[in-house]
């Protein structure tokens, strides 16, 4: 048998296998119960009902919280990255400890700690209530991750760039802000976009602490609709929220791969 023929047969066998497995799953599934549990049976899943709050409050807040956490995390991450590259050993050490600490903790625990632990311990009222405390926690964790991304980007800028700027008499601040950082940011756009997508999903963790009616993000609202409203007692609202998350994240993940393709083409 020729090699190309054998290869074509292998691909056919694989495709056939996938179809058979899918068919078996479809036949075995209890469609009635799936419909009842995940797409509640009286048709509310498509018309009215949960969608209003999920979109106008939930999706809007999810995007808003992601933007806040990303902007804050980016600023914090940049400061930490510059500290990690500082010539002063104490500053480097402080930044390293912070980064390792917050990268090693689940974001969920940091959120609970900021929301409930610190306010009790220090009589502290976080701005924006519990959601505000949760957002600060997300910023602290995101900052630790972005610091490492940014540090890698800064270090990827060739040393000759700094030397050229310094040889022209530019000081270290001008060299960093005008020569190194613009190039570093270009390098880290794909990984940073990736972290933006991760952050969208991390805002769901805010559902573990309380929020006022208008402060709720997608997951909080979806969980509220599990116990009240037209689809109470089913997971319908979670499926709806999942669809909304995909509507937000899919364009972004496409954007990441487009950016990566463009960068590959532009790199010399």
């Amino acid at each position: 048998m020729r090699r190309s023929t054998r290869r074509r047969l292998q691909i056919w066998a694989l495709n056939l296998g996938v179809v058979v497995v899918a068919a078996v799953l479809v036949l075995l599934a209890d469609w009635g119960r799936i419909h009842e549990n995940f797409w509640s049976d009286d048709g509310v899943a498509l018309s009215g009902g949960n969608w209003g709050d999920l979109i106008t409050i939930g999706a809007v807040n999810t995007i808003k919280y992601t933007a806040i956490a990303f902007a804050g995390g980016l600023a914090l991450g940049l400061a930490l990255a510059l500290l990690r590259l500082s010539p002063v050993a104490t500053l480097r050490w402080l930044a390293t400890v912070y980064i390792e600490f917050f990268r090693g903790l689940p974001a969920l625990i940091v959120i609970v700690f900021m929301g409930f632990g610190l306010p009790i311990a220090f009589q502290w009222r976080p701005p924006g209530g519990l959601v505000g405390a949760g957002l600060i926690a997300l910023i602290m964790v995101a900052g630790a991750y972005m610091a490492e991304t940014l540090r890698a980007g800064i270090q990827a800028v060739p040393k000759g760039q700094t030397e050229a700027a310094r040889s022209l008499g530019m000081g270290s601040i001008a060299t960093t802000t005008r020569v190194v950082l613009p190039q570093a940011f270009r390098i880290v756009i794909p990984p940073l976009t990736n972290e933006f997508v991760l952050l969208i999903k991390d805002t769901a963790l805010l559902s573990v602490i309380g929020a006022t009616f208008d402060q709720r993000e997608l997951t909080t609202i979806a969980r509220d609709f599990q116990s009240s409203g037209v689809s109470a007692g089913t997971a319908t609202s979670l499926v709806q929220a999942a669809l909304l998350y995909l509507v937000i994240t899919l364009p972004l993940t496409q954007l990441v791969s487009w950016l990566e393709r463009r960068q590959r083409k532009a790199s010399r």
């Binding site: 040889s167 022209l168 020569v179």
Partner: peptide, 28 residues
């Protein structure tokens, strides 16, 4: 920095700033 600004330096690898146009390379 002041002394360096009076010493022009040309590198083997050119080290132009790739994110800036030629004119911006010269004016920065």
């Amino acid at each position: 920095d002041d002394v360096r600004s009076r010493i022009g330096m040309v590198f083997q690898q050119f080290n132009l700033f790739p994110h800036l146009s030629v004119l911006k390379n010269l004016t920065l």
